[in-house]
């Protein structure tokens, strides 16, 4: 029984990370209708940023995350301007291919700059706490609660700020948004910025738990896609639900299946769901 609670906690931690990455991907998909295959690699860049800011510049963990979020927001905006904006009117497959190009570049670039070896981020919250008999490192709790806090912040941003509500309006009705005179350029830049910052935050939070290496984003991005497909492509609550479902499915699945098949859980889940409901679990009808 205790094992299950332990896995539950692990699942929530994983789900929190997935959630932050998938939320960014959902925002981009909702606005631009691009599956940004390079999003996981932005997460990777974010992880390196936090790592170097902590180890080389000795920055405080939270400061490092904050600065990485800013750096990544800028990188995200640049990517939008240089790669996706020029391709907005071409056939969708071209944008997909461009995203693949960006992904290859980021991964190779990271390998050139920082080497292919695995690095470990220093642990900040390494104490073990005992909650009702379950042992948990503080870091896991930090991940879970920080992710919740970020989601809350995102919610406030979307509901209370002008630019946030514009993003939401545009993701729901692209043509309608044009009609009321929304600056589409501004919105898509902001979306990429926010999404990339979220990826950086996720990377910073996950950093001390996992290893940092150039291809770390590859598997994650595909899981994030599984999540947003689960969530109905572009639905924010759907992505949140999907992320926790996948996180829990993986960690609980690990108690049933051999560990090396853990990564298969996500993809098999996707295959099953898309075979039964081609528009995702939470999609509204008629889309």
């Amino acid at each position: 029984m205790e094992l299950y609670f332990q896995q539950l906690l692990n699942g929530l931690t994983l789900g929190s990370i997935y959630c932050l990455v998938a939320l960014g991907l959902t925002l981009i998909y909702g606005i631009m209708h691009i599956p940004n295959f390079a999003h996981g690699h932005l997460y990777m860049v974010g992880a390196y940023c936090v790592l170097f800011l902590c180890t080389l510049y000795g920055l405080n963990y939270w400061m490092a995350i904050l600065i990485s979020m800013v750096i990544l927001a800028v990188i995200g905006i640049i990517m939008e301007r240089l790669v996706f904006h020029p391709l907005r009117d071409s056939p969708p497959t071209n944008s997909f291919i461009a995203a693949v190009g960006a992904l290859l570049f980021l991964e190779a670039g990271a390998t050139v700059l920082w080497g292919a070896d695995y690095r470990r981020m220093p642990e900040v919250f390494d104490k073990v706490v005992n909650i009702f008999g379950i042992m948990a490192t503080q870091q896991r709790l930090v991940v879970i609660f920080s992710a919740l806090a970020l989601m809350g912040a995102l919610y406030l941003f979307m509901k209370k700020t002008l630019i946030g509500s514009t993003i939401e309006a545009m993701s729901q009705d692209r043509e309608g948004a044009f009609l009321v005179g929304i600056d589409a350029n501004m919105v898509s830049m902001m979306t990429f910025g926010v999404a990339s910052a979220l990826a950086a935050a996720a990377a910073g939070l996950a950093g001390p738990l996992f290893l940092v290496f150039p291809s770390m984003g590859g598997l994650l991005i595909i899981k994030a896609f599984v999540i947003i497909v689960l969530g109905g492509m572009g639905s924010i609550p759907g992505a949140v639900a999907g992320a926790y479902i996948l996180g829990l499915a993986e960690s609980l699945g690990a108690t049933v299946f051999p560990a090396e098949y853990k990564d298969l859980v996500a993809f098999i889940l996707l295959v099953i769901i898309l075979s039964i409901r081609p528009t995702g679990l939470f999609a509204k009808e008629g889309r």
């Binding site: 998909y29 209708h33 599956p35 295959f37 969708p92 497959t93 997909f96 598997l219 595909i222 896609f225 599984v226 497909v229 492509m233 098949y261 990564d263 298969l264 996500a266 993809f267 098999i268 996707l270 295959v271 898309l274 075979s275 081609p278």
Partner: peptide
Amino acid sequence: ISLRLKSHYFTIFSLCVGLILFLT
């Protein structure tokens, strides 16, 4: 399974299939 899906879904789905085959 996958070709019933619209272009984005198909591409994402095919990527997952690619990974499943690799992992298998």
